[in-house]
Amino acid sequence: MTQKEAVQVKNLTFGYGKKTVLEHLFLSVNMGESVAILGPNGAGKTTLFKLLLGLYQPWQGSIAILGREIKSSSDRVFARKKMAYVPQERIIGKLPITVFDSVLLGRYGKSYKGLKKPDSRDKETVIKALDTVGLQDLANKDVAELSGGELQRMSIARALVREADVVLLDEPIAHLDKKAKEEIPELIQSLQKEKELTMITITHEDINMDFDRVFTLTEGYLKEA
């Protein structure tokens, strides 16, 4: 094997409390590959992403991102810098925030943090990303005023500005209308091709995208379809 693995999961077991959600799971995704994980509600798809992001620790088994096994907290810092996550829930909190600022959050920990302010390059990156997803005219709108499809585009833009190697998309077309269900996959697919991103897409419905490989997750087991 000459190609470096972007994500390698070995014998992963994890659950909440006493309940096991994922059992002896193996997954390896090569650099630049785009894979899909299908599975019914509650199968543990989101849980798998959270494990990859280091939000939970595996009960058993190991996770390696770009060849580095994730064990210590400095490994997790590394992993989070290399990955961008587009979450399933599109929660709008009570905090007033513009689309521009919300996308800029994606640069956190990369170039700014604490007293270190975002610089002009950060801002250019955000403007470019907003252009790419077609939200350039909504930059100064409050996030609470966006439609579901626009929110999803915003989340994608936030993942883009991270300039990450691995992008994790959790249900990118759930709760969108018919038009957005066609446009969003197109956008994702073209971005993946253009930037040669490693991408894992979770979905429980038909999605109009080409994947290199498709997996199904049911009752804690992952199988290649």
Binding site: L55, K81, I91, L95, Y112, G114
Partner: peptide, 22 residues
């Protein structure tokens, strides 16, 4: 003044903040 950005991120969405390393 010192942690304005961290505070903003956690107030906006604490899970997102966590995935960004906070």
């Amino acid at each position: 003044v010192c942690f304005y950005r961290e505070i903003q991120l956690v107030l906006y969405n604490s899970e997102l903040a966590e995935t960004l390393g906070i």
